[in-house]
Design a protein around this nucleic acid. Sequence first.
DNA 1: AAAATTTGACCCAA
DNA 2: TTGGGTCAAATTTT
Length: 297
Amino acid sequence: MDTNKAKQLKVMNQLVEGHELTTQLQQLVSQPGSGLGPAEDLVAKILECFNNSISVLDTFEPISSSSSLAAVEGSQNASCDNDGKFEDSGDSRKRLGPVKGKRGCYKRKKRSETWTKESTILEDAFSWRKYGQKEILNAKFPRSYFRCTHKYTQGCKATKQVQKVELEPKMFSITYIGKHTCNTNAETPKSKTCDHHDEIFMDSEEHKSPSLTTSMKEEEENHHHHGSSTVNDLSLVWPEMVFEEDYHHQAIYVNGETSTSINDLGSPNHLVFGAGGDFGFSENEHFSIFSSCSNLS
DNA sequence: AAAATTTGACCCAA
DNA sequence: TTGGGTCAAATTTT
């Protein structure tokens, strides 16, 4: 009935979507090695346009945008004060005594930009470290939690959540929360193409049962497979995943992932999606990427 | 030995 | 109280 409102909402949604997409583009463009310096400025301007438009609309009527841009209130940065480092107070905090001191200092409220995309590709230009996995109610697949590898070295607050899409098991829903503040000048080492093959994984429709991961792990060992490190990446998100068939797609760089994406998948068992950020700091990390590559050849 | 992952406990918001 | 996000000890991998 309220056509005006409906239209307004539509416009808003479109703007928000445009904003999201632009943000994604910005991330891509800002990746080193892309040689898209001037494009960055343009993207920044486009983003500003969206921002302005949105804010104008917003002042008219605070539409409770149901969009995914809904700046998530809440957040990490909670490491309670300290730069995120755990100061071993004497002994490590055992879980036995409820050591009520440290835990729980993190607040889940703050606003940080989030956006979601679906892709068959898990890696991106950043290096992530998995810090958790959860079974989600009514979801067939668990959700994995990652934080920027440089959270502690550079205080980068970016995190992402990855979950397999039920209807499209080959697809992953990847939600990015917060922007990277770390140095991500990692020029993607294109020369180092780890030539591994396709992504292989099978959608184990396994009914989840407790202790599933463990048993699956064993099963995986039985399969006795080496070679594709991609599998390792995937199994990071879905440990129960066992690969058997070759998956032939590969070129679906959703949302224009960098052309190097697939190849970069050659990470070892680590969670180093893509060529991790700038190597200004932890060289070990990208070193491991390469070493894995050479191992393959 | 160091770094990364696994996984159940812990915490907070709804 | 419950679901989901995070922590951190134990374990695995490099």
